[in-house]
Design a protein around this nucleic acid. Structure first.
Lengths: 242, 242
DNA sequence: TTTTGATATTTGATGCAACAAAAAAGTTTA
DNA sequence: TAAACTTTTTTGTTGCATCAAATATCAAAA
């Protein structure tokens, strides 16, 4: 069928180039669309067409197609008909399932991170937390959500488990659109703050169970707020009544 | 940016069609390649080119490209150079990470399945187990692995969590190639049998913790066997020495 | 023999056109 | 007015040509 590669390349003496990164229009388009979805820039129900995406991203249909196809595979977009791709609605059952998986995986990542986290990391986390606090004070809710995401993923990355982080990212990707139009209401609560402080303390103490508990609490409190908003905002962005 | 669709489609009276499935060359190519990977038909290190895949699958480069791109996104294939896509090697750290995630997610799926599993399901699982036993007796190791997969995923599907099952599938996809050429050695052990029996008993008793424990044990025992094989088979299919 | 460099080949990325299917718009009819 | 039909437009799919970059091949030089 296919030939297996057998060669083993010689390592360069200087061993410099850490491998040039990917750069292709398809990759960029994918990243751009994904980013829009994660940060809730796209309202659930938004219909995406090949050519409209291509136009907005200023690429041809081929890279746009790449991006859409991949995002559908991840669940970030869904096929809602023969020729209709839309930003998915987040139903309560969906939220339940995603939350259950998040508790498992982000809990695991949080635990593991205690083994690798550095003092510098903790300082950075404290700065992010200050950014969150300031954002709450000054009503810059987008900042709050951004910093919140950075806070979580900095911890998760320190698990040293790349695949795990990727999977968690795909879960946030699925949640993103549900935040569309909810920024003020959602970010206003300060219950998340204490959870983050507990997480920080746990990291300093190198206490995996404590960090896990803090993250789990944070996820649960987010779940409560989001699930109530899902019901309340039904007419504006909820699932279309069938 | 994009227009949001506002229509709410009328639900069909009969509400039958569970939505006609996708059928496109790209989708088929993806499914075919993915299947090859999961069942270990492709040796790690195998180099895939657009045109070779297109030729084998008897499609043009476009669907082949779709399949490869998506699989790379899932980690089922990796980019090992500027223009080189290969079936990934499974290193021990990789296996460790995947196993940790599997314990979390397959444990969760196993737990949840106890809430929905039916008598018919249990019967089917028993039949699958008999197929496993027969396969072991008669040395039909491919059958053993196939039935083993069916056994696990029947349980996981009964969790009612679709996304969870998809994620678990992507983990198996990552493990598949490591089984290439290991069928006899790997399937010979019968330690998995008792774990399956424990799982069955747990399902009958509707005991989530017991089912979870059985599945976790099964995963751990598989981990032990595979990790030792990984080291042993180094020269034949291990990572190329650099 | 090994190394070096030039040449030929292969490769993925990208854009694009053709096509059929689907949706939308418009028109006619009851 | 609404239902049924027709026409027009839009859409995703697919194949393919082009191009630059990477690879493989091979011959000359050391």
């Amino acid at each position: 069928m296919f030939a297996a590669s057998k060669k083993g390349k010689e390592a360069l003496p200087g061993d410099l180039a850490p491998i040039g990164r990917h750069s292709s229009l398809g990759e960029s388009a994918y990243a751009a669309l994904k980013d829009s979805l994660i940060r809730g820039a796209l309202q659930p129900g938004t219909k995406l067409t090949l050519r409209s995406v291509a136009q907005v991203l200023e690429v041809s249909t081929t890279p746009a197609r790449d991006a859409i196809t991949r995002l559908i595979g991840e669940g970030g977009l869904i096929n809602a008909g023969p020729k209709t791709v839309i930003v998915p609605y987040l139903s309560l059952p969906d939220l339940d399932e995603i939350t259950a998986i998040r508790l498992s995986l982000e809990g695991l990542a949080a635990e593991q991170s205690t083994n690798h986290v550095t003092e510098a990391d903790i300082h950075e986390l404290e700065e992010l937390q200050q950014r969150i606090n300031r954002g709450l004070d000054e009503g810059r809710y987008t900042d709050v959500l951004d910093a919140n995401k950075d806070f979580h993923f900095l911890i998760y990355r320190r698990s040293g488990m790349r695949r795990l982080v990727t999977i968690i990212e795909s879960l946030w990707l699925r949640m993103g659109p549900a935040f569309n139009g909810l920024y003020p209401e959602f970010a206003q609560s300060r219950t998340g703050v204490s959870n983050h402080l507990w997480a920080l303390r746990g990291l300093q103490d190198r206490d995996p169970a404590a960090v896990r508990a803090a993250i789990e609490n944070d996820i649960r409190s987010g779940y409560r707020r989001l699930s109530s908003q899902l019901g309340a905002a039904g007419d504006q962005q909820g699932e279309p009544v069938t």
